[in-house]
Amino acid sequence: MSRDAGLEKLIRQELGERPGLSEKPMFGGLAFLLDGNLLCGARNDGMLVRLGKGNDGWALALAGIELMVMGDRRMNGWVRAGAKAYGNDALRKRLLDAALAYVLPLPPK
């Protein structure tokens, strides 16, 4: 899996400068972490977003967004947004804002 520099740039612009934000190559792409907790990721096959178990129904109801699957494992609480979904500025912001809302209260790792 190769990285998507354009998507990485979009995510960086959306997240901005924020204390505790870091990046780490992971899952065949680039993961964004907040205080050590996975927040989202960028791969050439889409934007991965952590919404938390039970918080992903609204996103899964939208076109271009599906449940994240790693191998045979269904990753409940994580979604993968395709290019048409993450290319929509308002939807990308909504997804990342929802990820921040879920991850911000988590204890630092």
Results as ranks from 00 to 15, higher is better:
Gly87Phe: 08
Leu33Lys: 12
Gly71Met: 04
Glu8Gly: 12
Ser2Arg: 14
Leu34Tyr: 03
Pro107Phe: 15
Ala90Ser: 14
Pro105Tyr: 10
Gly6Asp: 15
Leu100Gly: 06
Glu23Met: 03
Met70Cys: 11
Lys24Tyr: 04
Gly20Asn: 01
Ala42Arg: 05
Leu96Thr: 07
Asp45Val: 10
Gly20Trp: 09
Gly6His: 04
Gly36Leu: 08
Ala101Val: 13
Lys9Gly: 11
Asn88Met: 07
Ala98His: 02
Tyr102Met: 13
Leu100Ala: 12
Val69Met: 11
Asn37Gln: 09
Arg50His: 12
Leu91Phe: 05
Gly64Ala: 01
Glu23Asp: 10
Leu34His: 03
Gln13Asn: 11
Gly16Thr: 08
Met70Glu: 14
Ala63Arg: 15
Leu33Trp: 00
Ala83Ile: 10
Val49Asp: 00
Leu100Val: 07
Val49Tyr: 01
Gly20Leu: 11
Ala42Asn: 05
Ile65Glu: 02
Lys24Trp: 08
Lys53Leu: 10
Gly77Val: 09
Gly57Lys: 15
Leu60Phe: 13
Glu66Arg: 11
Ile11Arg: 01
Met68Thr: 03
Leu96Ile: 09
Trp78Met: 04
Gly82Ala: 06
Met1Ser: 14
Asn44Thr: 11
Ala98Lys: 06
Gly20Tyr: 08
Glu66His: 06
Arg92Phe: 01
Lys53Glu: 15
Ala81Glu: 08
Ala42Phe: 01
Gly41Ala: 09
Leu100Phe: 00
Leu48Tyr: 06
Leu95Val: 05
Leu96Met: 13
Met75Thr: 06
Asp72Phe: 07
Ala5Arg: 08
Asn76His: 09
Gly52Cys: 01
Val49Leu: 04
Ile11Cys: 07
Ala99Val: 07
Ser22Lys: 05
Ala81Thr: 04
Leu38Ser: 10
Gly29Cys: 05
Gly41Cys: 07
Leu7Asn: 02
Gly71Pro: 01
Glu17Met: 08
Pro108Thr: 08
Lys109Trp: 07
Asp35Val: 10
Cys40Gln: 03
Leu21Pro: 06
Arg12Ser: 09
Glu17Asp: 13
Asp4Gln: 07
Gln13Glu: 15
Leu34Cys: 00
Asp4Cys: 06
Ala83Thr: 10
Lys24Ile: 08
Arg3Thr: 08
Glu23Leu: 04
Leu67Tyr: 00
Gln13Val: 15
Arg92Thr: 03
Leu39Trp: 09
Lys9Phe: 09
Val69Glu: 12
Lys109Glu: 13
Leu7Arg: 00
Leu100Thr: 06
Pro107Ile: 12
Lys93Val: 04
Lys53Gln: 13
Leu67Cys: 12
Arg3Asn: 14
Gly54Cys: 13
Phe32Pro: 00
Leu30Lys: 04
Gly28Pro: 05
Asn88Asp: 15
Glu66Tyr: 02
Arg74Asp: 15
Asn55Cys: 11
Leu51Pro: 02
Ala99Thr: 05
